[in-house]
Each structure stands twice: as structure tokens, then as C-alpha cells.
Amino acid sequence: MTPRIAILSTDADYYLMLSHVLLAAGYSTVLADGSEAALALITEKKIEVLLIDCQPASSILSDITDRLKTSGHSTDVLLVALVAEGVPYIDILKAEVDESFIRPMKPEWLLSYLHGRLKAGPNDAAGRAAISGPDDLRLDAGARRALANGKPVGLSPIEFRILSTLMSTPGRVFGRPELIEAVWPKANFVDPRTVDVHVARLRRSLHEALGREVIRTVRGEGYAVETKE
């Protein structure tokens, strides 16, 4: 099945240009002219990727990512920000998208990234394997969804990748450098304190869902997922 990509943009010319590039590469595209339209496509599982046209003085990036996290669908789709000049970098960090590209960019960069992330396909058995940790917590790697007692937990893409790494070996302590390498593989530099911020958010979400502490902090070393006693 051809991967379907939605382009969230209010600029018709930009959509047509980007759509032409993606169609030529074998992808199927659809325009989402606002956050409501994008959210509907994601909740109805009609797309695999959402490309977000980020413009200065526009709240579209924060709006869609906030809506996705609130609805529990933030890990259901690959989120890619296409960032125009003048957009504050802190806004991109806060949005916690899977990847971002600064415009103008070479189309080959975006296509290479999409090919690498989508090549396994939605029906790949290995990609959909469940990751088990404590009895009341599991991950569906294919759907990129965390389940607490069988119910979805609203996590950002970065939080999901951190949890996936920790749950790959329950009880093992992962240092901050290891988590940075696993979660931000293409980043030039990530401050270790950034890891602490995301782990704190992840810990809070899991505590709200399970009513107990899931992540253990080992001072000076890193973090580990606790097994359920």
C-alpha cells in the first residue's frame, strides 16, 4: 500500500509544489488546511505522515501537536515540521515532533528521511511487535502507542522513544548519553538536561495512568524502568 502523507498548510502554492515532489517519489498526498482536518485524518488512520508547514507568527504547529497529545494520538503518525526562516527554534523543541527541516531544503533530504522511516511498512511484523515491561505497561511498536492496563497513554513522540528504549531492558539503567543517541540520533547536540525534562514529563504521564512510579532515577547514572512488584 502506498504511504499516504498529509500536508498541513494554508499555502496552496507550497502544497502543490511539495505534493508534486512527493507524488513523483511514489507517495500519495492530501491537503489538510487546518488542525481540525489534520486531526480527523489521523484519528481515522488515513495517513502515515503529517508534514507541517511552519510559518512565523503562526500557531499551527503548537495547535496540532497539543491537540494530538490531548487526544492520545500523538504517536499514531510521523510528525515532520518544515520550518520557514523566522520561526523560533524553541517552538520546534516544545512541539516534540519526530523530525524538522529548515527551509529552503533539498527535496532529497526529506525523501531520504521518509524512505528510511517508512520502508518497513505498516504491516511489517517486526515493526509491530509488542514491547513488554511491567505487567501493567506495554508498547505497541508498530502503532507507536503505550498502553497502561490496556488503555492508551498520551505521549509525545520523544517520550515514546525514551520509554521504548528504557523498556527494551527493564531494570537496566540507561545513561543520558545512551538515551540521547537512541532518541535524538541525528541531532548535533542535545543538552543532558533536555533528557531530564522529557523524562520528568514521561514519569508524570505514567504516574497519572498507573498510579505508581514507573521510572527510577539513579543519581549520577541515568534512568531505568521498574518492574512491577
Rank of each mutant, 00 (worst) to 15 (best):
R4D: 04
I5E: 07
D11A: 15
Y14F: 15
Y14A: 11
L18R: 12
L18S: 04
V21T: 05
Y27L: 10
L31T: 05
D33V: 11
S35L: 00
E36I: 05
E36Y: 13
I42H: 04
T43G: 05
K46Q: 15
E48N: 13
D53N: 09
A57T: 04
K69L: 15
G72I: 07
H73W: 09
L78D: 05
V80Y: 08
A81I: 06
I90W: 09
I90V: 13
I90T: 09
D91F: 08
I92Y: 07
E96I: 01
E96T: 02
F101A: 02
I102A: 13
M105P: 00
P107D: 10
Y113W: 08
H115D: 14
H115V: 02
R117W: 03
A126V: 10
A126S: 00
A130H: 03
I131E: 04
S132Q: 06
G133H: 01
D135S: 14
L137V: 10
D140M: 02
A141H: 04
A141M: 02
G142K: 00
A143K: 08
A143Q: 06
R145G: 01
A146L: 06
N149P: 00
L155D: 01
S156H: 06
S156N: 01
I162N: 02
M167E: 08
S168E: 07
S168T: 09
V173A: 12
F174V: 03
G175T: 12
R176Y: 09
P177E: 00
L179S: 05
P185T: 09
F189Q: 02
P192D: 04
R193E: 15
V195R: 05
V195M: 12
D196L: 08
D196E: 15
R204Q: 11
E208M: 10
E208R: 15
G211Y: 10
E213A: 14
R216I: 02
E221D: 00
G222Y: 08
A224I: 05
